[in-house]
Amino acid sequence: MLTFTIRRLLTLVPQLLVAALVVFVLTSLLPGDAAIARAGGESATPELIAQYRAQLGLDKPLVERFIDFVVHAATGDLGISFSTSEPVSDILLRKVPVTLSLVLLGFIFAILIALPLATIAALHPRGIADRISLAVATSGIAIPNFWFAILLVLLFSLTLRWLPATSYVPFSTDPLQWFLHLLLPAITLGHALAAELTRQLRASLGDHLRRDYVRTMRSAGLSEISVVGKHALRSALGPAVTTLGLQVPIAIGTCVVIEAVFDLPGIGSQMVQAVFSRDIQVLQGVILFTVLLVVVASFLTDLAYALINPKVRVQ
């Protein structure tokens, strides 16, 4: 297991380098540049634009700019925002916890919904839980997130007045308020993620319950809790874990919408803002962070998968 972890860790380096290159190239290709934006739009004099270009280092060759970018990024220096002159790393430090909290809670909700529902559904095919799980899977895919979010706000914030509809309270300030403020957004995200997870888990657990080893365990007199919980579910979690890993990028995309609806100062809303103000420096930082998140998630996925499935470890 240790050698597997180390081997898998080593693959992270090239992955991140390639990711950095893609991020850099993409943001460089963005139409319009920050110098024009700074100089006051297309109508500014060419001299002024050139002056800003030089100041921002945009006149250097691309290769040089990329090397600068990687070296600086590796040391935590992501440049300075073109529009607010604030260091990008400071902006990220402020916004990343919001999105991370949301994604984390969202996944917890997704698992809390999917795991029991899928288990009961798989144990009683065509039963009530099976139908509910199908309904969850369908609604999670069919109902747009913003619409679901608005429904939640209408019900729990405006009608029942149980939960706040907007803004964010840091965990360090007040854990309870942090949780309450994130509850509706996290349910929105969890509902979206639970759809695929429930469907996947239901199918793979159903499959494993028909396997020969389950028959062996039952014929040996083991309890259903052990047969299902310890044996079948463990193997069935393999594909589900993979699904979870693949959903991290989707979750981040969903965060853009959810943060907008609930007015959360997270990475998603920052990304939108950066695009509109042509703030390439910030955009690079934001995207780099999301890529990092995805790469780390896939690393953790592989690790979890290897923990579940001993066959993977030897390969």
Binding site: D212, R215, H231
Partner: peptide
């Protein structure tokens, strides 16, 4: 009773044990 008073073995040893 199962496993204690009555033991069972099956045809497929390849799949009869939990791979995990």
């Amino acid at each position: 009773i199962r496993g204690r008073d009555v033991g069972m073995i099956f045809q497929e040893p390849m799949t009869a044990l939990d791979p995990a």
